[in-house]
Simulated assay, not measured.
Amino acid sequence: MGGENIEAKFPAYKQGNYLKDLINKFENLFFTEYAETHGEWNLAIENFCGENSVPIMTIYKSKGLEYSAVYFIGLEESAFWNFKNQLEADRWTFFAALSRAKEAVIFTFCKQRTGMKYPVQRHNIINEFFDLLQRPGVAEVNHISR
């Protein structure tokens, strides 16, 4: 399918050099992947398509979907939006994500993050979620340190 056919079918691509810029970005990204795989076309294509990778999505994009497991990565107070200032909205968001899991939910925290204004991380206020899940015996807490 040529560029003219794509532009005819999808009018958004007619705006200036939008389609040409997208094609150039695609080429650059793909050939970067090709170079990183040392010229192995099949591996470059697999990597570019995301095969053998773990898909990550936002809570917003997960609405209406279900998964065997849901992972909350970096659930510290400073990373979970503005939890102190908008408790109700973030509670709804949290439970929307939590309800996507059919079998398991995993939460991860960091005690410290490098390169941040406040490197020591906390999850005291956000612990209400864990307290709720631990009371009926639904949650199990495992502490792992490096």
Rank of each mutant, 00 (worst) to 15 (best):
A97R: 02
A79H: 09
I125Q: 10
F26I: 07
E77A: 01
V70H: 12
E128K: 12
N127D: 12
F31E: 09
P11S: 13
Y34A: 10
N142S: 07
F26E: 11
F83E: 05
K14T: 14
N47W: 03
E103A: 04
Q134W: 00
S99T: 15
N5C: 08
E77N: 11
E103Q: 12
Q112S: 04
N142T: 09
K9I: 01
P136S: 02
R91Y: 08
R135W: 06
Y13A: 14
N52Q: 15
R146W: 03
E40Y: 04
E77C: 02
V138A: 13
Q134S: 14
F94E: 01
A69M: 15
A79I: 02
V105D: 09
G115S: 05
N28Y: 01
A101Q: 02
P55K: 14
T58P: 06
P55C: 11
I106Q: 02
F26P: 00
N47P: 00
G115R: 05
M116C: 03
S68P: 09
F83T: 09
W41A: 11
S145H: 11
I126Q: 02
E51P: 00
F26T: 10
F31S: 04
A12R: 12
N42T: 14
S53W: 01
E4H: 13
S68C: 08
C49S: 13
C110S: 10
E140F: 01
G115V: 02
V70W: 12
E103H: 08
C110I: 00
S145E: 13
N17H: 04
E36W: 00
V105M: 06
L19C: 07
Y18W: 01
A104T: 12
F109Y: 13
K63C: 09
F107D: 07
M1K: 13
V105E: 11
G50I: 06
I144E: 03
E103V: 01
S68I: 03
I126V: 11
G2W: 09
G2A: 11
K25R: 13
S78P: 00
S62L: 05
F129W: 06
I106W: 09
Q15K: 15
F48I: 09
Q86S: 06
N127Q: 12
R135M: 13
G39Q: 05
V120I: 06
S62E: 08
F129A: 07
F129Q: 04
Y18V: 03
A89M: 06
V70L: 13
V141R: 13
F31W: 09
F10S: 09
G39S: 07
T58I: 08
E33H: 02
Q121S: 07
N28A: 14
E36R: 04
L22D: 15
A8Q: 15
G64Y: 10
G39F: 04
N17T: 10
F30E: 07
P119W: 01
G74P: 07
K102H: 04
A89D: 15
S145F: 07
N85Y: 10
W41Q: 05
E46R: 14
V141I: 14
Q112D: 02
Y34M: 15
E33I: 03
H143W: 07
L19E: 13
R100Y: 05
C49H: 11
G50N: 08
V141W: 00
E77H: 01
R122P: 00
E33D: 07
F48G: 12
P136I: 02
F10L: 15
Q86T: 04
